[in-house]
Structures are given as C-alpha cells and as structure tokens.
Amino acid sequence: MQSARLIGEKSQSLCIVRDVSETGMKVRLFGTVAVDDRVCVEFKGGRTVFASVKWIEDRFAGLAFETPIDLQKIFDTAQPEYSYRAPRLEIDATATVTFGRAKLPMTILDISTSGIKLLGGDALIRGEDVTIDIEGLVRSNAVVKWKASDLVGLELEHPIPVERLADWASSREFRRSLSDMVSI
C-alpha cells in the first residue's frame, strides 16, 4: 500500500491506495470528498491522473479514472530522481527551525509524512542537523537534505503518521487546487 494525494477544487488530502486497476481505484480517505467530485490523484514520484469520485462508504472511496492508466508506468519505482518521494501537501503554514543557537520562523511550502520544503532557509547548510517545530503537528529532529538559495528541504528523523498529517492539514489553506492543474 502507498499513499497518494487527492487534489480537489478547494482542498488537498492524503489517501492510502487499497486496490487499483487500469480504470479506477479504491482508497482509504483522510480528507473530505463528495460523490461526483473531480480530483487529480498524485502518486509517489509526482505521477498524476484525473478521476471522479463514484462512491463513498465509511472512510473509503471508489474513483474512476478519466482515461485508463498504465499501471507499470504509474507505480514503476525504477525511475531516476524523486521516484520514492511521498506525495506532498502544498499548504500555507509556518514552522520554527532551530539550528545551533538560532531559532527562525520559516514558511512551509509543502509537507509530506517524511519531509518538508521551507522558504526562508538561506542560513541553513546542506547536511546540517536541525529541529523543526510545527504547532499542532510535530516537533522533530531533521536534516537539511537540499538547498537552493532560500529554499530548503528537510528530511524528518521519524515520519509523521498519514492520518495525523491529514487531520492537521484539513484546517489549513492550500497553495493549489484542481483548476491550477494542467489537464482540466
């Protein structure tokens, strides 16, 4: 089982893929969708497909893809860069990062169960150990995995459980919606 991101018109949420075929899939929901909603499903590695919600029962939903998918291509983990990257929520929130004797607020650009992209990290160094504190979600040790000017990517020491991240994110604003996606 793997997680995926559902991008709707007004929200983003995480889900767990339970069953999948070339024409649709069953997911465990951690956010809110409604029958007939159109969503963009983003799998690990950033591969996307458009679908509509056909049914919802308890915390599960059935999605029908707009066009059949190539399962090998969607789930192939032999791709180069980012193929193992967990789906990320593009969320509007802040974090406090502590490194050395400094403690700085930074803007979260996106977050997954295992990593966070931040704006405002120009003082951080690649490979540096830091502590990140996100109110209501997590306080964790992390390492700076990459840096590009004032953007940084942190890898958390311990992953955030999917359900906890999804619950926390449900009350936040998101940076993109379905209408921002390419193939509308």
Rank of each mutant, 00 (worst) to 15 (best):
M1N: 15
S3V: 10
L6P: 03
K10A: 07
V20W: 00
K26M: 15
R28G: 09
F30M: 09
G31P: 04
A34L: 14
F43R: 05
F43D: 04
K44E: 13
G45E: 04
R47P: 00
R47I: 15
R47K: 13
T48H: 01
A51M: 01
S52R: 10
E57Q: 13
A61S: 11
G62P: 08
A64M: 12
F65N: 02
E66T: 06
E66D: 13
E66R: 06
I69P: 00
D70P: 03
Q72D: 15
D76K: 05
Q79E: 15
Q79N: 11
P80T: 13
P80I: 09
E81W: 12
Y82K: 12
Y82R: 14
S83F: 12
A86P: 00
P87L: 07
R88E: 06
G100T: 05
R101K: 15
A102F: 14
A102Y: 11
P105M: 04
M106F: 03
M106K: 04
G121R: 02
A123G: 05
A123W: 05
D133M: 02
V138H: 00
R139L: 11
S140Y: 01
S149H: 12
G153A: 08
L154K: 04
L154G: 05
E157Q: 15
H158F: 14
P159H: 03
I160G: 02
P161W: 06
L165M: 08
A166C: 05
D167H: 08
W168Q: 01
R175L: 10
L178A: 06
M181E: 11
